[in-house]
């Protein structure tokens, strides 16, 4: 899958915004949003939030987890654990990227958050690489991937399933020969 498609999926996540206009409820096919009251927070999908923000029609409120304190804690847990820890959002990296990209002035300590997110991502990717390596070496055929987020799974998609397919083919041949 193209990373842009993972982003596309993440854009369906809801985020709070503070609009600077008044408008009644909008009936979208994917569900209702609004009503919009200037100055009052309201939940909208990210794709809508970034569009409204670009048109200077709202301010984006950072999700609960998107602050330095919480993320430092997540980072600490991730570094202490041998396994993957549960991320505060299924799309933490994409959400961070989209919201900080569209509205870095709205989110306090945007640059620090960006750095911590990148650190968490790097840590998890290196864990992922070493576990894939270990998994292939023991000749595994099934693995549990709990707490891996969509973008992380997508990053190993071109390689891991394909490698396992090839190994399976080789094993089948070995079995036929040894019979």
């Amino acid at each position: 899958m193209d990373p842009a498609e993972v982003e596309f999926l993440a854009e369906n996540q809801m985020v709070s915004i503070v609009p600077n206009f008044n408008f009644e409820r909008i009936y979208l096919i994917s569900g209702d949003v609004g009503p919009f009251r200037a100055g009052l927070p309201v939940q909208v999908p990210i794709w809508m939030a970034t569009n409204l923000r670009q048109r200077q029609k709202c301010r984006i409120i950072a999700p609960d987890w998107m602050n330095t304190e919480k993320l430092e804690q997540v980072k600490e847990e991730e570094s202490q654990s041998r396994f993957f820890t549960k991320m505060p959002s299924e799309h933490y990296m994409v959400e961070g990227h989209l919201l900080l990209g569209a509205a870095s002035e709205d989110i306090p300590h945007a640059d620090e958050i960006r750095t911590i997110l990148k650190d968490i991502w790097d840590m998890r990717m290196s864990k992922l690489r070493s576990s894939v390596d270990a998994f292939i070496k023991i000749g595994g055929t099934h693995a549990k991937l709990d707490h891996l987020t969509a973008m992380e799974i997508n990053s190993i998609r071109p390689l891991l399933p394909h490698a396992l397919d090839e190994l399976y083919k080789l094993q089948k041949i070995v079995r036929i020969i040894s019979i």
Partner: peptide, 13 residues
């Protein structure tokens, strides 16, 4: 033989 828990993620054939 594996059991899949609700909401767990896996890679397999």
């Amino acid at each position: 033989e594996v059991d899949l828990e609700e909401n767990s993620q896996h890679i397999m054939q």
